[in-house]
Design a protein around this nucleic acid. Sequence first.
DNA 1: ATAATTTGGTTTCAAAACGCAACCCTATTC
DNA 2: GAATAGGGTTGCGTTTTGAAACCAAATTAT
Lengths: 164, 164
Amino acid sequence: MARKRFDDSHCSVARALNEVGDWWSLLIVLQAMYGTRRFVDFQTELGIAKNILCDRLARLVDNDVLRKEEVGEHGSRHEYRLTDKGRDLFPVVIALRQWGDKWNPVPGQPPLDLRDRASGRRIRTMAVEDADGRPLTIRDVALPGAPDDAGPMPTKTTTTKKTG
Amino acid sequence: MARKRFDDSHCSVARALNEVGDWWSLLIVLQAMYGTRRFVDFQTELGIAKNILCDRLARLVDNDVLRKEEVGEHGSRHEYRLTDKGRDLFPVVIALRQWGDKWNPVPGQPPLDLRDRASGRRIRTMAVEDADGRPLTIRDVALPGAPDDAGPMPTKTTTTKKTG
DNA sequence: ATAATTTGGTTTCAAAACGCAACCCTATTC
DNA sequence: GAATAGGGTTGCGTTTTGAAACCAAATTAT
């Protein structure tokens, strides 16, 4: 049957994953952060099939992560650009990149750190911190939605509960 | 054809998404962070099909995000627990949750902030920061892999030549 | 002006992935 | 010894994916 969707989940992670949690969406957002704007460039640089790219771009536009703009110059007719909402995925992407770099480094290559353009120094490793900036572990944080905080996710019935 | 995989991509975001970038994996990790450990509990609380859960748990164990432990008590024979690598996804999950809470809040409900258990105060909003803790935007950060830094993602054909 | 090309798509279709239900095996409990 | 619970696997029909073909508007080349 259809892939499950989480539009109406009360868990915001689920709702977030509903918008950018598939194989391509976050890579498209990343590519947009790299500066890519045109359909063909996304296609070439990501190596994604055109129909899938179409679908993902449309969905990202629907979800207000990207904005489709008409530009009548040079044969390219529109550009896909990040919205504020899309740009706000920056911490997510960076956290994911740092995780990937730490736990799945490319064997032969040196660790390519992310650097502040202005100073050239490495950026901080993303961390969950309390109000004073002290790092917090999972156990330090009260996670609303966790079993010990409130009820878990909905859809407890395993019988024919179509989420939508 | 087969879904694309990015095991060998030189982009660490792609490699990270290869491990936890599907619809369920990150939700399973989140659930594990909530304290869930047993197969049946994952199934009930996520509302996921058993075979899919099997597959995802096995893949997460393969990728060293979860560890499968034998516990011989009470009819349940194993538990799935986060490894250090899995626990290190905490910033990713929190960043994603904050993004979801900010941009897709549940209409009727108050914003349930994440709080430090010890102090009860809200945790900081995840941000990309320079070495001194100053917030950085996308443009402030040199992203290795970006077109203006190095070559883009792996490509088979360099058909697009717009670099005048 | 006409042909060839580029951009941004849609259509077609096989291979995969998903979801449900049914079944299986082991260990416990009644 | 039957029923139950944990943890899976198998079958099967539906959905998604991806490569390539096809398409239309706009541009560039001839």
